[in-house]
């Protein structure tokens, strides 16, 4: 019960701190003179032409997908890591071989990703 209230208090505190000061700053700062040129997005001084949405950047979603899948495998490593030391005394071979099979499949997945060229960043 205690950590949950503390976590909620910290989140509210951090968001309030950021938002309140942002609002305070916009009130305190000099009056905003909106000029067409100034509010153009920053293109190192040149006036950027509005190109269609950048197609080249679509490649990044594959990194996010691989991140999800390998993240799940890390999640399954935590419970095993906690009890490894204790279970060594009871049935050591069992717990060791069990995780080596899991790691082998994980390594095979990583090796497949490597060989299939999905990790080529041009």
């Amino acid at each position: 019960m205690v950590p949950l209230i503390a976590i909620m208090v910290i989140t509210v505190l951090a968001t309030l701190f950021g938002a309140a000061l942002l609002f305070f700053v916009s009130k305190v700062g000099p009056k905003v003179k909106i000029s067409e040129i100034k509010s153009l997005s920053y293109e190192c001084g040149l006036v950027g032409e509005e190109k269609k949405s950048t197609k080249v950047s679509v490649k990044f979603y594959l990194v996010a997908i691989l991140f999800i899948l390998f993240d799940i495998e890390i999640i399954f490593l935590y419970p095993w890591a906690i009890i490894y030391n204790d279970m060594l005394t009871t049935n050591a071979v069992f717990i060791f071989s069990e995780m080596m099979v899991f790691m082998a499949v994980l390594l095979f997945g990583l090796f497949y990703v490597w060989r299939s060229g999905a990790l080529r960043w041009d």
């Binding site: 979603y61 594959l62 997908i65 999800i68 899948l69 993240d71 799940i72 999640i75 399954f76």
Partner: peptide, 17 residues
């Protein structure tokens, strides 16, 4: 719940691909 989460994440990954 562990396993449901894995299935949900795998489904979201393939679905979005």
């Amino acid at each position: 719940v562990f396993f449901v989460m894995t299935i949900a994440a795998a489904e979201a990954a393939v679905g979005l691909a």
